[in-house]
Design a binder for these strands. Structure first.
Lengths: 220, 220
DNA sequence: AATAAATATTAGACGAGACTAATAATCGGA
DNA sequence: TCCGATTATTAGTCTCGTCTAATATTTATT
């Protein structure tokens, strides 16, 4: 059983994050994501290729092997489980857990991860609405995405609300939004992450990032 | 605010563990504890002295400064809180938590530690009966020690039972032991950690390590 | 198609943290 | 007290992961 250093794991995860399909991950993008230089990334890609976690096609980026994908999924699993723990049990805000989870995901103890999973009730999605791989590394995909990941012109139906705070629910209610509502994204405001949406029937209005972030929607 | 690497923290903790009073910690003992070589330890001691965490008197070992002690206590705090979490919440055995806690104690996030402390109900002692430093780094010392740390001839009074399992309580009851019972250690069996004890009134009998480990006693 | 711009790789350096081997200091026994 | 044994330090080397600078390859532009 080959083990990876923290840096190797970081690179592997960056590659995984950049892919999300069969595409290649490019050196400069990995470097940007990790705040390092391209030359450092090249070195790491060679090492990871050596160890069988990915294929490195010089000048054409990297793609993961089955082994690499499997390992990346264990990292994603750990990251998302810890985020869930921090938010649900330790009352962290969903926007302040990332860097701590970034550290926790490198803790190596299969027993710990599985116990944590059970302790949390085997959650399927983390506080951000992203799916948590199961013990076998299977991602239970949800055909939905978060409203804040949609782009102008998308028409979608609200499928779930990932945080059931009174405040949020009342706010949605006041706008006439509920599970099943259909709406179209009219405009995105980059500077604060808010978006203007128009319900199928009725006038358009604005939703803050805090709100759109918690709305799981499916394409209509 | 100076931050320490994992290795620096490990050395600092080793020094702290070897002291427990004003004595010096010696190079070879630190090396033995960390599974490294004496020369590596010397290098680290110099570096830690440089940073003001300890005084290094060449050939005469190291002693902690106030700053060093304070930092070591934050590590001890984290270690014991995580052990408590692992045992009380994730059902780890008290004998299998050490190495995982060894990793977790290096996670750097003051907020995380304090939240975890609250989540666990601000426990005063970890699953091994060792005191957990509070937010200010104060150790709330207990004048008691665990029965399994006693030696032949000690006469002590049972002050507390650190694990309140039905099984353990029934076992103690069947032996006629309860809070306040006074007993003398007659013999220690190194090969299994068991000990023979004699109650003030009554015949001697044997206690396994599993039992003596959970009995907090005070000198009589 | 030629060349400039962007990106990637290679080569060489460096600091951190470990090691081995050589040297120095302290300790303990005759 | 002297000398060997123990322990500590220093000197020099190695690996890892990063960097910068130089070179190579791909891409985009004219």
């Amino acid at each position: 059983m080959v083990t990876l250093t923290r840096s190797e794991e970081d690179h592997l995860k960056a590659v995984y994050a950049l892919l999300q399909d069969g595409e290649s991950a490019f050196t400069k993008d990995i470097a940007a994501r990790l705040n390092t230089k391209a030359s450092s990334v090249t070195d790491m890609l060679k090492k990871l290729a050596e160890k069988g976690f990915l294929k490195h096609e010089p000048y054409y980026g990297a793609k993961l092997t089955a082994k690499g994908t499997a390992h990346a999924l264990t990292l994603v699993r750990k990251h998302r489980l810890w985020e869930t723990f921090l938010v649900e049990r330790l009352s962290f805000g969903w926007d302040e857990v990332h860097e701590v989870a970034e550290q926790l995901e490198h803790i190596s103890s299969p027993k710990l991860v599985d116990r944590l999973d059970d302790y949390l009730g085997n959650p399927r999605f983390d506080p951000h609405g992203d799916p948590i791989p199961d013990r076998q590394g299977k991602l239970r995909v949800r055909k939905t995405k978060r409203l804040d990941t949609c782009t102008t012109g998308d028409t979608v139906r609200i499928a779930a609300v990932s945080e059931t705070t009174d405040g949020l629910l009342r706010l949605l209610d006041s706008k006439g939004l509920r599970i099943g509502s259909v709406l179209t994204v009219q405009e995105l405001h980059a500077f604060d992450g808010s978006m203007d949406v128009k319900p199928k029937s009725g006038a358009a209005f604005s939703l803050s990032k805090d709100v759109s972030h918690h709305l799981q929607v499916e394409s209509n």
